[in-house]
Design a protein around this nucleic acid. Structure first.
Lengths: 135, 135
DNA sequence: CCGTATCCGGAGGGATACTG
DNA sequence: CAGTATCCCTCCGGATACGG
């Protein structure tokens, strides 16, 4: 047998689906920003900023749908809409922070590995110019 | 539950990039499977299975590049190649498990929220059939 | 058995213009 | 200010075929 009796979830479908919510380009960033307190639409737009209006809307709708954020409309003029993390959203934020911490803690190592690989580390499998030389 | 002094990473670039490694459709599944011990190419292919040969190759290359797995070639006939988690890979696996646990623990709540939303929860913002009378 | 190269459809996501 | 609709283009990722 192998290392341990790790049972390998098997409930992959669900996990994968949740992961794709987290994995998409914007959801996490929005959630993180919302972790700093409720925000208005254009406020988020400015902070996250690489994001387009369209994508912010879609992202927020998705998060709202999954019960991760709430959307509060103040029918004033001009209209004002606040987005805020739910309890569920906060707990996701905490979990995601774990991943973020890992990323920060290991980014140097990863970048180094990447550089190593992009150089010549691939010569195990003939991907590199087989001009071994040195002679 | 106001997070108060959370500093909001700002180093978003790195985090986002790592997240996209984790967020893509196959990386995590492969890492998880590799958590059960070293595996051969076609062995992975069978276990992960929704995956195509192309995607498995690309996924493994990516993981190898980031120093998360090692690739060991036995120049026998027929050729044999083993993939195995590195220390870095193992630590990622642990972190990802956290996310997986979260997903499993909260999937019911998420699915419920989703159903609620898909029903009529969206009437806050006129997305639903606006046949109602004066507001 | 392991991997690469090519073809190709479809989802993701940006830019822009318009509405309430 | 907040949101929707359209266009359009890129890249993901599956199927297939071929090479070591």
């Amino acid at each position: 047998m192998s290392p341990s009796h790790i049972h390998v979830p098997a409930d992959c479908g669900t996990v994968t689906e949740i992961l794709s919510r987290v994995g998409d380009k914007w959801s996490v960033q929005v959630v993180v920003q919302l972790g700093g307190g409720p925000k208005r639409f254009n406020e988020l737009r400015r902070i996250v900023s690489g994001i387009s209006q369209r994508m912010l809307t879609l992202t927020l709708r998705g998060l709202e749908r999954d019960g991760l954020v709430t959307r509060t409309v103040y029918p004033t003029i001009p209209p004002r809409v606040d987005y805020q993390l739910t309890g569920l959203g906060c707990s996701l934020l905490r979990t995601v922070r774990g991943l973020g911490d890992w990323a920060i803690a290991n980014r140097e190592e990863i970048l180094a590995a990447r550089r190593r690989f992009d150089a010549g580390g691939a010569d195990d499998h003939g991907t590199e110019p087989k001009h071994s030389d040195a002679a």
